[in-house]
Design a protein around this nucleic acid. Structure first.
Lengths: 243, 243
DNA sequence: CGGGTCGTTGATACGGATCAAGGCGAGTGG
DNA sequence: CCACTCGCCTTGATCCGTATCAACGACCCG
């Protein structure tokens, strides 16, 4: 699980003259900014493509920049002194990544898959968030929905068994990566078996066994190790003990 | 675990002409409001004393009011269809309780111990939060620190064993209920053994055994079932595997 | 081809759940 | 005042789900 440094994996640095064409402009936080405000931020912003496994911010570090996720998935992970690890959240496009208003990050931020992000320095962003109520509000809303998600996950971690945990994760990923309310879903899992274990408080062996179990139950099909097909979302949801 | 209704347990309703004397005024949400703004909120606010076990908001309900916790402890709990329960957070004075900007509550809010709160209707509060950046910011900060706390708890739930879980909880309660950086702490536990289990993903029997274990290890002393004395915070922290 | 990483599968160990019994304090009624 | 009950907690015996240990397969890359 050796994480590469950011510098090594920058494969594209472009000045964002093209905020207007940015895919995160609509739903992301930039959507609420006026052209002038956007210019203030964009002056120092950089687009980067981050390789899977690359660490953006390490645990305990006071990050100098925030990011918007343009595509791909970031994982937020806490590691204990003896190496035990817990993933405490994932960030999909087009979300904002960072802990607003200066705080050491209590977790590392790492690319789960190859990820494109737009980074910008913390200070102007914090100022803008205080000056522009709409921006502050957008960040607040995101924090609230991450809080809802974290609490939902506490229920999964504390009270579900291994099969329910894996089903819950697959359902969650399916909803994020193949949106819309089809009955069937298909998506590319952006986490390794180890990472799934670290998200659910399980070992890789248990993760693997439950995948096999779900396949035998015909709740999922695996095209390959990463490509998951869910033929019937309702059945998976009932295995996950989700509403 | 029968929860009484709010109405039955109101033992004191006073018009808050006395916001100025309010103990939550300084650190709480209200601290950032001008007298006029405060008046707008206070017009509809009510102080109540809530008995332990009384449910303020039920899971899935769209709450009509927010509250400030003046004293005591509220617990936030999620319950699955088959009855499994997980506590996903506690709120101590002087914090704000509620999900800003209208959303169904994903969890029930219940008094863990006898609790005094100040309630006020949602709508004027939401408006005020949008109009007064300082208030929005304060709520945002609280959401962020609850998020940090929830993620810390995910690590506890997913990766710690029973002894570490109980030690982590006791340390957390000690810090909240007996603040200051003494080496010794003493506090009244506001949760039953069942509730502790529901917070940590354990059964009451396991909770009880770990209490006994901690007593034998001389990491805690129990005056009675609820009154805990911690002779050496550092030792408890190392049992909790906390930084 | 050999070596490395990642995932799967099997055998066994162990921590916490479950089942069962009993203790203790508070409230109630005789 | 005591006997009784009820809720809450503790302790012991046993069971089971997941961790651990070990072997092996699939795939990739040198």
């Amino acid at each position: 699980m050796g994480s590469t440094s950011v510098e090594q994996s920058v494969s594209e640095i472009a000045t964002p003259s093209g905020c207007n064409a940015c895919e995160a402009r609509g739903e992301g936080i930039c959507g609420v900014l006026s052209p002038q405000q956007l210019a203030r931020l964009a002056k120092h912003s950089k687009r980067r493509t981050i390789a899977a496994g690359c660490e953006l911010v390490s645990q305990g570090e006071e990050a100098a920049t925030y990011s918007n996720v343009l595509s791909g998935v970031l994982k937020l992970a806490k590691t204990m002194a003896d190496g035990r690890q817990q993933i405490v959240g994932l960030q999909f496009a087009p979300s904002f990544a960072g802990r607003p208003y200066s705080h050491r990050s209590a977790y590392a931020v790492e690319a789960a898959s190859e990820t494109r992000i737009c980074t910008f320095p913390r200070q102007p962003m914090d100022l803008l968030a205080l000056e522009v109520p709409e921006l502050g509000h957008r960040l607040h809303e995101q924090a609230l929905s991450e809080l809802d998600e974290a609490r939902e996950w506490m229920l999964t971690l504390g009270r579900k068994d291994a099969l329910e945990k894996i089903s819950t994760l697959l359902l969650y990923m399916a909803r994020r990566l193949d949106p819309g309310d089809h009955d069937k879903k298909c998506f590319e899992l952006s986490l390794s078996r180890q990472e799934i274990g670290d998200y659910l408080g399980l070992t890789i062996e248990t993760v693997s066994r439950q995948f096999t179990r779900l396949r035998k139950l015909r709740a999922i099909e695996l095209e390959n190790l990463r490509l998951v097909r869910v033929p019937n979302v309702g059945r998976l949801a009932s295995l996950a003990s989700v509403d």
